[in-house]
Amino acid sequence: MNKKIIEATGLTRHFRVLERREGLSGAFKDLFSRNYRTVKAVDGVSFSVDRGEILGLIGPNGAGKSTTIKLLTGVLKPTAGGVTVDGFVPFSDRRRYVANIGVVLGQRSQLWWNLPVIESFKVLKEIYRVPDAVYERNLKLFNDLVDLKRHYHTPVRKLSLGQKSICDIAASFLHDPALIFLDEPTIGLDVSVKKNVRKIIRTLNRELGTTIIITTHDTGDIGNLCPRLILIDKGTIVYDGPTARFNKAFGSFRTLHLDMSDMGEDERGALEGRLAGCFPCREKISVREEGDGWVTLTLNQDEVPLLDVLNHCLKTCRVKDVKIEDISLEEVIIKSYEGALA
């Protein structure tokens, strides 16, 4: 068996979108002539995935993650380039191909709205012709991980978002697919449910050897789950490599949000220069205005101690509130272009 399960070369997908004109007269003009614009949602992406791997796809909104998933699952036809998954060309062999994969879309459920959960499972069992033994084993695996039995007889529409997400993931694993695509499976879930989802994914990968492709905004998903990640921006790959290296490059970065709405604009503007003077380092601390009086500092803890910077700010400025976070994806992208991952 081929060790590589996915091989994509120069995968490209463009969309033509209608530009609507504004206002009443615009609507009239649109009735008669229309303007189109091309969006390069995925633009020449090449990568490969090994069997049994968990791969994370991350990127800011509109980066092209979902489009990539749609290309890999055979829903969309590539504009150019090609991909084979487990020996199939997803788009052309769709029907045979999808018997072998599972798909979970975070925002939309594949379960039947009005059916009790267990009935949905039974229908899926028929559709994928899952042998009884496999079906029982997978349900048991799930019940050991999260107590799914409780919800068996509840119609899907009455489940909470978190319960629905878990059921959806269970549904996509029922037929022992060779690989599973999860598009933002943790979107809108709270911390404990997120943890559960990660636990399920990790266990299934380990026990059943399922290859998993997961897209997310949440860097937490990546750090906890995927040994390897691909960072996408504007339809192209910015980084493809071990999560460890990514973490090493960005793990020590922190963003420091300070509420300085009591200070004048020019006072805040002077902050960057002052910080550069006080804390000389290779990469100077970036300062960004949020527009509502909040200021965002991004700094690398390997170079300057976070606490020193914070202390300095507290001493020299009137700070009303403080928040400390991991580096945001937007900053990661900017820094990657500047060569942080090279």
Partner: peptide
């Protein structure tokens, strides 16, 4: 976008769409 679910099933899309 709910129609997308029909593309993930190893069945005829029209059949699957109408079946429920």
């Amino acid at each position: 976008g709910n129609f997308i679910n029909c593309c993930f099933k190893p069945l005829n899309t029209m059949f699957y769409y109408l079946s429920d």
